[in-house]
């Protein structure tokens, strides 16, 4: 059952689940004059599943985009898998190949087939032989339950299918950490479940996950920890039961009443 974990463990020969996979210390980020992230301190252990929620504009997406340098932070340190994130391009590329990301708008490559989407990075970044890369891709497409669409183009699939391909594409790089940036926000309601099911299965396999999402059911079921952000700060961190049943800050109470209140 624990195959993802095993595969990634092969990489370093280290199976200690308590080692921090991500360590963020006193991180600050500005967009121009706008202070988007303020004094972020966060440590994520290997195998942990974290859901980040909060009102829009609170900096949750920016936070996880800093982890793989899609956004550059200006102060503080981010260490991913013992690699310090600096402007050294080699380190950035190394971190990016260890960290998978799933976007709100899927961002599949429309000019490539589903299979090619999944094999591109393994072939060109990991230098995996094409045949092996295709085998891996088919394995993960099977896992997200769309092996029969491998030769279609993304434009021929439904939104839910596209997002599952995007998950498979990220998994094909055998990442040790997966980042999800509102993966279900652009989907029709009937397709949200298929994507969440895929993510739950991934969590059950032991993947380290950081999810920005508004799916509170998913948070309850899967997360080890819920992080609530507002105005660029981490306001509350807690286990899901505590966070949903007994929120401590006024801000989280208000937020929960707004999204759960109907």
């Amino acid at each position: 059952m624990n195959e993802l974990q095993d595969k990634s463990a092969d990489h370093t020969g280290d199976t200690d689940g308590a080692r921090p996979a991500i360590r963020i210390q006193d991180m600050n980020k500005w967009f121009g004059d706008f202070h988007v992230l303020r004094d972020i301190n966060l440590s994520v252990n290997l195998g942990e599943r974290i859901v980040i929620c909060g009102p829009s504009g609170s900096g949750k997406s920016t936070l996880i985009r800093c982890i793989n340098r899609l956004e550059e932070h200006q102060k503080g340190t981010i260490v991913v898998e013992d690699i310090v994130l600096s402007s050294d391009l080699k380190n950035i590329d190394r971190i990016r190949s260890e960290v998978g990301m799933v976007f709100q708008h899927f961002n599949l490559f429309p000019h490539l087939t589903v299979l090619e989407n999944c094999t591109l990075a393994p072939i060109w970044v990991r230098k995996v032989p094409k045949k092996d890369a295709e085998e891996t891709a088919l394995h993960f497409l099977e896992k997200v339950k769309i092996p029969d669409q491998a030769l279609k183009f993304p434009g021929q699939l439904s939104g839910g299918q596209q997002q599952r391909v995007a998950i498979a594409r990220a998994l094909c790089m055998r990442p040790r950490i997966m980042l999800f940036d509102e993966p279900t926000s652009a989907l029709d309601p009937e397709m949200i479940k298929e994507v969440l099911d895929t993510m739950i299965e991934l969590a059950n396999d032991g993947m380290t996950m950081l999810c920005v999402t508004h799916e509170m059911g998913f948070a309850r079921q899967v997360a080890n920890r819920v992080i609530f952000m507002d105005e660029g700060q981490i306001v509350e961190q807690n286990s899901p039961e505590e966070f949903f049943n007994n929120p401590r800050s006024e801000r989280s109470k208000l937020f929960l009443s707004q999204i759960l209140g109907h």
Binding site: R96, H105, N107
Partner: peptide, 15 residues
């Protein structure tokens, strides 16, 4: 091209 295409490539570790 949408910015997402650049980001998706970068997120996969492509230089």
């Amino acid at each position: 091209l949408p910015a997402g295409q650049f980001e998706a490539g970068a997120a996969l570790g492509l230089d």
